[in-house]
Design a protein around this nucleic acid. Structure first.
Length: 130
DNA sequence: ATTCTCACA
DNA sequence: TGTGAGTA
């Protein structure tokens, strides 16, 4: 395979990025298949530039924050088109995500309370029996 | 070593 | 949302 020159600071092979970010080359190709990345090609080999690498970083950050690839894709698509619409979309998605996390937190707190109550009653029964 | 596709969870 | 296998 023709790989980008090792010393060329803004050309990356798929394996370079996979290694750098601790993800599989399969995952990177998957993101491309989903339209989140569009690296150049030299024949069949993907050539990633700094811009592609920056997009990958945004993708991974979005994932960490719990957004779907679809959400991330929608957001990235607006980078060139409409920046203010991109910001609006971001605000909406963040609010949505925040609400979802708050709901999950609430559910967890309820579950934790129930478990603590069960434990409390169980502990009391142990004392009576023992 | 890299690419693509299909099956699979 | 990815992975594994087989392929060229």
């Amino acid at each position: 395979m023709n790989r980008p020159e090792p010393d060329s600071r803004d050309l990356f092979a798929i394996a370079d990025l996979a290694k750098e970010f601790g993800i599989s080359t399969r995952a990177i190709r998957f993101y491309e298949a989903k339209g989140l990345l569009a690296p150049e090609r030299v024949g069949a080999t993907r050539i990633f530039r700094r811009r592609d690498r920056a997009r990958l970083i945004l993708i991974l950050r979005g994932k960490r924050l719990g957004f779907s690839l679809r959400d991330i894709s929608d957001y990235l698509s607006l980078y060139d088109a409409d920046r203010s619409q991109q910001v609006s979309l971001l605000i909406g998605k963040v609010d949505e995500r925040l609400a979802s996390l708050q709901a999950q937190l609430s559910d967890l707190q309820t579950t934790i309370s129930e478990l603590k109550e069960i434990k409390k009653l169980a502990d009391e029964r142990i004392k009576q029996a023992g």
